[in-house]
């Protein structure tokens, strides 16, 4: 039964623009979809492999910067710029992951060390003024184009970006799902549940942790590539610890034990501040209170309430 939830949700999402009228609603949902993609890829590392990474914002931010710089300053085609952006993220994740997992860092040690690497990269971005424009951030005016028989069409407008964001989420989701449905997913779960036993059965714990970390990080990078062009603005804040914490909140809110939970978490957490019709100070208090309440009362997250726990992955 629960297997069909994502498909039904996708059908609803495809039809939704027929019912959405205001551009601001489109904007909220588009942000929600992009952040949900981040949450889904984060959960591959956290919920499915059991590694609390604080590197996700860095992967996201680095890819956003590289694509924007290649397109704005070097006049690259947006789609081609995705390649080097993701390759760079993959390299960074490979190095950071290899160091952490070679030294067998677990739980909070892993979290703190990935956080340190993430901060290191953020400081490079902040201080490399000539390339990144430092703390001021970069305005991204270029628009990605799609090929069409009548010439290139620019990706612009609320409706178009809504579908772009949906496509990013679908790609992220499907990649994670294919990975988890294979032996790789079983090994991730084995590592999460009993690393030593996994090792006894012949699972190369180092390799699979690294694989999970790199795949998740590259998918975060994919979101980053699009995110900057949607908002039209990129700043070092993208790589901050706060950004990583937001992603963690989304996953905890939606539910760690499924692929679909983080989708709900991402959408709800993005929409929540806009739905609460209060002054800014009160809004943030209520927002925080709701988050704390949900985590206390529903440790398995919103989606966790509906799913029947049974299979390994």
């Amino acid at each position: 039964m629960m297997r069909f939830v994502p498909l039904v949700a996708l059908a609803c999402a495809l039809a939704a623009p027929l019912f959405i009228r205001s551009d601001s609603t489109f904007a909220i949902v588009t942000f929600g979809l992009l952040l949900a993609s981040l949450a889904v890829s984060f959960n591959l590392i956290f919920g499915f492999t059991g590694q609390l990474s604080f590197f996700h914002a860095a992967s996201f931010g680095v890819a956003a910067y590289i694509t924007a710089i290649l397109v704005s300053d070097y006049r690259w085609n947006f789609w081609l710029a995705i390649g080097p952006a993701l390759a760079t993220v993959a390299m960074l994740a490979l190095v950071v992951g290899a160091i952490c997992f070679r030294f067998k860092l677990r739980e909070f040690y892993f979290a703190v060390v990935t956080m340190a690497f993430s901060e290191m990269i953020r400081l490079v971005v902040v201080n490399w003024n000539s390339v990144t424009n430092g703390t001021l951030g970069m305005t991204v005016t270029a628009q990605p184009t799609l090929w069409s028989p009548s010439g290139p069409v620019a990706l612009s407008g609320a409706r178009v970006w809504y579908y772009v964001a949906l496509a990013v989420l679908v790609v992220t989701y499907v990649v994670c799902q294919r990975v988890l449905a294979s032996w790789i997913g079983r090994c991730f779960a084995a590592i999460r549940l009993n690393e030593q036993l996994g090792e006894t059965l012949g699972v190369n714990v180092f390799l699979y942790k690294l694989l999970s970390f790199v795949i998740g990080s590259v998918l975060a990078g994919l979101v980053g590539c699009f995110y900057g062009f949607y908002t039209g603005f990129i700043e070092p804040q993208y790589l901050s610890i706060t950004q990583s914490l937001d992603i963690i909140s989304m996953v905890l809110l939606g539910g760690v034990s499924s692929l679909f939970g983080p989708v709900i978490g991402g959408l709800v957490l993005t929409a929540l501040p806009h739905v609460i019709d209060l002054t800014a100070e009160l809004r943030i208090i209520l927002y925080g209170a709701i988050l704390i309440f949900v985590i206390l009362v529903m440790p398995r997250g919103i989606f966790g309430l509906f799913e029947r726990p049974h299979h390994a992955v």
């Binding site: 549940l193 009993n194 030593q196 006894t200």
Partner: peptide, 14 residues
């Protein structure tokens, strides 16, 4: 040592 949260069958397959 078993994977307590796996099913019996998944444990065996592992």
């Amino acid at each position: 040592q078993i994977f307590a949260r796996f099913t019996v069958e998944d444990n065996l397959l592992m």
